[in-house]
Amino acid sequence: MNEPLVELKNVSFKYDAEAGYALHKVSFTIFKGEWLAIVGHNGSGKSTLAKLLNGLHFPLEGCITVGGIQLSEDTVWETRKKIGMVFQNPDNQFVGTTVRDDVAFGLENHGIERDDMVQRVTHSLEKVKMAQFLNQEPHHLSGGQKQRVAIAGVIALRPDIIILDESTSMLDPRGREEVLETVRELKQDYNMTVISITHDLEEAAKADRIVVMNKGQLYREGTPEEIFQMDEELVNLGLDIPFPVKLSKMLREKGLPLSRHYLSEEELVEELWTSHSKM
């Protein structure tokens, strides 16, 4: 997992020459096959980062390389083939009148042959478990189903990287789980790299690595274990601490001998069970 796929070097960006930096001197690397969560408060620069990665904007200073290609206006069509994006609002990313047309749209734009296209549409919709909705109109679908169709549209193009830009934040808990489960499976099957921009700390806890953004700057990067050691510092950044971490801390304050911060409820229950049965 140590092959760099995307590299950001000293990237700065402003939306308006007069305004402050939306991103300031951000550098980090995204490795092939990892699930990277980018977290931060509203306005911390997370979404700007996503827009830069997909070449919707270009860095004012610094540079971004995707799969060895430096991102610029000349290469953007090349790099966009490598990156698929799923946005926040399920209602803003449907272009087709049916599920099938919607998935085919991107393929058509890329000039894929019809036979190949038909096959890819069916295959991608099967992958996201939406094949039985082929001829449905989008407004009959739930939010989670719409997002899964959006994902099918993305994977039909076989990108190396999928960026989820708060793609689950408008969904109910069931829809959220559906979408994340779908992405987890795809990541496994295709060895895809996932960049998930999120507020959901429970989701971030399951990532391989986390980047914390604050006020347009990279504040910290590390494994979930390392990041959630930050504790109150995260709360001060407008974020939260996952429930099991919070609970471990409170139990330790009560004098229970827990060996570490637990990132999952299962691990914590396991540890409690072990020490309970020893007593």
Binding site: M250, L251, L256, S277
Partner: peptide, 17 residues
């Protein structure tokens, strides 16, 4: 609440198996 929960867990651990 988390306060209630930690109380209860601590009590249960004290009682032992």
């Amino acid at each position: 609440t988390m306060e209630e929960l930690t109380e209860e867990i601590a009590a249960a651990m004290k009682r032992g198996a």
